[in-house]
Design a protein around this nucleic acid. Sequence first.
DNA 1: GTCTATATGTAGATAGAC
DNA 2: GTCTATCTACATATAGAC
Lengths: 216, 216
Amino acid sequence: MKTPRPISAPPRKRAPSKRALATKRRVFDAAEKVFAERGFDGATIRDIAAEAGEPVGTIHHHGGGKEALFHQVVARRAETLAQLRLTTLEAVTSQPDHRLEEILSAFVRPFFDLARDDPRWQHYARLVAFVSADPRWAKISETCFDPVAQVFVQAICERLPQKSKDQVAEGLVFTVSAMLAVLTSQHRFDTLGAVPAKTSSQMEHLIAFAAAGFQT
Amino acid sequence: MKTPRPISAPPRKRAPSKRALATKRRVFDAAEKVFAERGFDGATIRDIAAEAGEPVGTIHHHGGGKEALFHQVVARRAETLAQLRLTTLEAVTSQPDHRLEEILSAFVRPFFDLARDDPRWQHYARLVAFVSADPRWAKISETCFDPVAQVFVQAICERLPQKSKDQVAEGLVFTVSAMLAVLTSQHRFDTLGAVPAKTSSQMEHLIAFAAAGFQT
DNA sequence: GTCTATATGTAGATAGAC
DNA sequence: GTCTATCTACATATAGAC
């Protein structure tokens, strides 16, 4: 049972100061970058501390241990991404004659747009790729990303009534895999293709590729 | 300059005994499994030793250090996979009216077939997924997998003359990403779809999906 | 909240007996 | 080739001064 806190008594936990919040943000940004570059096991608290310009103890204080820090860093931007995807989808599906490409774009494009200019979102994309690939983090995926994916599966099903939910889910997994490759594995394209490609056009190509695949 | 070894002098390196070769194979199989489950940084020499049922020193003796061991384990099965893909492709392109699906199948199917019954090839698939995703191992990908991928890019280009090499390379990266997802991330499909899907049908769906994407 | 110092465990690697 | 014992380094985590 929760006991309400008397107005005059000292709060159990004071609101953090502006300075403390700024420190925490620096710690999280640094963790995001280091985890993205080296993965969970390859990253060390000391690397993160050096990147943040903070002593090692501070990382533990704000992160609550390596694994808790990892969880929090992944969850931190998930809500922003989810909202952006859902409002974009809403704008599409409110049109009676919307196209499949627009639905897929609502899923893929927000992530590209965020990552295009902000290096922190580029780090986050790499982090998401790690989380998606490793069964060890399946629980994080389920809470942070699957609910929105389910909404998109539903939207695609309504647009393609002849397809089963399983077929659509399958196609979305294909699409997400390719999306993460574009966001995080530029080197793969550069070694196979003739000229280095631009991410923005890759995104358009991916949407067209996937739309054709879904409609098979 | 190489000095030829006189027939009567002792060789610099004796041929390994049958027993030594068997030990080495056990070490590599164990390393393959542990690296696949935990990634390079998450795996430890001691885990590998325990899995192989060998003392720690033996792992170093046959592997030559953690990173060298990793390289060797990835390279070990690459040649088998490459040959199987190339001969399958050969059989397809020797037919004058072959279909795009058959080319893609020649790339995707051998890996599925090997992994279907042999757990060691399943481990290897996970390992390849790790290697493909991490820029840190880009050099390994370039030597082990890119040459064959180039051949397939060429074959697809000849089948789709209206497409540029870059477009085809892009599509193949999309396809490889999705293929590795099917081979290694069954949990992704299970949480999104309604019923757990079978890998073999997923492979067929992937080929159809990708073929439609290429022909857009 | 911040920082220093330290406790405790375990990593990769090797030397040398067998 | 195989195995035991050990070296050295660095990991996470925490205790306690400020």
